[in-house]
Design a protein around this nucleic acid. Sequence first.
RNA 1: GCCGGGAUGGCGGAAUUGGUAGACGCGCAGGACUUAAAAUCCUGUGACCUCACCAGUCGUGUGGGUUCGAGUCCCACUCUCGGCACCA
Length: 861
Amino acid sequence: MKTNTIQVIEKKWQETWERVGLYMADITSAKKPFYNLMMFPYPSAEGLHVGNMYAFTGSDIYGRFKRAQGYDVFEPIGLDGFGIHSENYCIKIGRHPMEHARITEKNFYAQLRKIGAMYDWSKTVETYKPKYYKHTQWLFIQLFKRGLAYRANAEVNWCPSCKTVLADEQVIDGACERCGGFIEKKALTQWFFRITAYADRLDAHLSSLYWSDKVKIAQKNWIGKKEGIDIVYDVVTEEGEKVGFITCFTTRPETNFGATFIAIAPNHEFITQIIRVIKNKKIVSAIKKYISGVKDSSIYETLINRIKMKKEKTGVFTCLYGINPLSGRKMPVYVSDFVLSGVGTGAVVGVPGHDRRDFEFAQVFELPVIRVVSDGVNRDDILTKDDVYEDAGIMMNSSFLDGMTTDAAKIRIINYLESQGFGKKRVVYHLRDWLISRQRYWGPPIPMIYCRSCAEKGKSYFTSKKSYKDEIFFKDFDILASSMKGWYPVEDSDLPVELPYLEDFQPGNDGVPPLKKHASFYQTICPECQSEAIRETEVSDTFLDSAWYFLRYPSVGSSREHEVAFDPEITQRWFPVSMYTGGAEHSVLHLMYSRFITMALHDMGYLSVDEPFANFFAHGLVIKDGAKMSKSKGNVVNPDEYITLYGSDALRLYLMFMGPYSEGGDFRDSAMEGMSRWVQRVWNITIRVKENNYSVTDNQILRALHRLVKKVGEDIERRRYNTAIAAMMDFVNILTNRELKISIQDMCVFLQLLAPFAPHMTEELYQRLQDRDMIMDSSQSIHAQQWPTYREELLVDSLISIVIQVNGKVRDSITVSPENGNNQAIVEEQAKRREKVLRYLKDASVRKIVFVPRKLINFVL
RNA sequence: GCCGGGAUGGCGGAAUUGGUAGACGCGCAGGACUUAAAAUCCUGUGACCUCACCAGUCGUGUGGGUUCGAGUCCCACUCUCGGCACCA
């Protein structure tokens, strides 16, 4: 089979399959729907790379297998065209994003058609098209109406290079996920999604999802549910005059008898109060100086760098004291930047004996260290950082807690503090609300309108007649109404708010969104009072586009396509997604956001499911020359040239053979050639099988074939494609090593097993064995045939080998019938006659014989 | 620092419940066919010892342990790859 023959055959079948509609699922009446979803790509300017193809192929093999098992498989594809990544690239090469998106889509889809996946090309989704983002905007509005989308002033991550804010999740080691530049912290008013309202459910559902533990653990850590207590400490001056109180959150309240200081974040609200109270001007100016110093340095110095540099802790004493209600101790209050304002209450109570950070701080300010937990043996004073004991143990120096375990003491002290009114139990999460707005151009405009006139009157959507107060998920309606003064969603009938074609789409240094420079875009009328109003000019995060695309696919092309984001009836049939395949790098971001959106839509009554993905499978990464493929390393492999040279069948097989699908593998050209040779061998053998035209298959080959049917089916199910392919190679070796006695019918069975991996060549060969060179309708395709079954009785060999061990070491083996293999007396008798065994047995007595039926016999001397 | 993977020939990787370690492929070596080469096919290929494809010794990151028997189970450690990170 020459290279051009491969090209011709692959193209022929790709066109034929599409013509006969082989891969179009019956969306409205499928009896056994199977939604086989692949994470849709975010195409880069270079187009499809071999890592994408690896991901898609693994998903496609599974889909084809499920189809052969009789499911109505729906396997859609699309792309995410919006986002900073594309926009930055456009700025660099001086092309408009709208034009770039069209070019990318064309190229990308052309490449995708060549990989031989069973995509339903009648149902693609592209996020940047108005007919899609119309519904993205609708979704935003639904969240807003229920109080799940809100505006707030917060300290946010600002990327000076991308000139936009980023969500916490998009900041990696204090740097921008996209451009790698350092992140600054800025206080800005931004749009947020109240994902924290779902934190508990997002956490609780995890245990019942059929996802890999690895991904579930990553999500659990990110949600970071922790139970603790807010303890209120009275604050007094040196002279003992009470001036206020500070609330500290802690997860280790049982250690509170060992608390010796309090530290608050530099931007803690209590500071303004302190400054008023403190009479000593020197101290006030010291505090002010410290705070402004922290602000300056944090622009250039991320927290992460400070940890890495192991910088000494800093802080400033306020000359005020918190009173520990348990011990009565006067604990000095400090302002320190090691306390983060966004965490807990922004104030911590320092227990230097049992927290390393607290110990470091205590050392700098020479504060006392008290041991209140022992490991059961060691009760010595804590003098160095290595002595700090953070584990569970036995309480000491803690009054009524002494002698209790830390776990028991925790329950006891929480009850005590609550009953005395000193504190209140609280659950906290690491998860924060999702920062959704971006000061950029290339995204869906946030569909909101701000009316100054209404704002002045204290009016908003929430005070209007249209508001449905009962459906608000966020409990505190008053807070919502007062913080959203003047804001109204765009009327559904006015959607989409189209993104205009702007020549000056580049972001400004000032954080002013490009749309804000175009009055023709933002000038509008207030939907409530009809006076002049302005549109929101920020756009939404790309992650919002991809947080609901899977809901859209089945409804594409339906009669209600334009009217609704997704058709309820169709969605009912196809959800949840049966199998979701994608990269582990999306374990936290995309999967968490998608789950949140699904839950919210469920609660609004739009969806019956409240989890989108029943199964999620994380595939591995393709590496090249021992390194992750990346543009900067220059080791990115483009699949096009390999498809041209070897065909997509050989490339698919090779990619899946590199290693377990869950682990990824190392791409090497020489091994690729080996796979190409094997594909050629299969071709040649099949041609010979047809020429020979045997009617009966040799018994040995038949047994091997039935074992193969079992093996390949099981391996595909557990995504061990590499071993499935190895087993098929083994079978082909058996075929070549002996006279080719296999019937055409049985050869077709083999081709069916290979078909999910190499769809084109198996189709061509299958049709040739059927004496056809073309198919008239989809039912004739090899991919429409039922998956082969195996006969149990053919799986057992006529002879089995039994291992003979002496003292656990293999010395020999014998071949017996399966029946005799179960009979210890026969096996023992035969084994003892073996010369190699006799050599060890003759001078010693056998103490014990271990017999494992059909496996081994072990003589212990 | 915390959480989660992983470590097997020259290389990628196999190995249900502990039961013949190294399947399958790459590479390498030798051979057949050929004027020659390519392609194809056949044979061999963990290390050591050995005249030997007899027999034997060692061998799954390191050190211990459990067991008739450990790549697999337990304890301690080293290295490595991901994720999170002054989270109170």
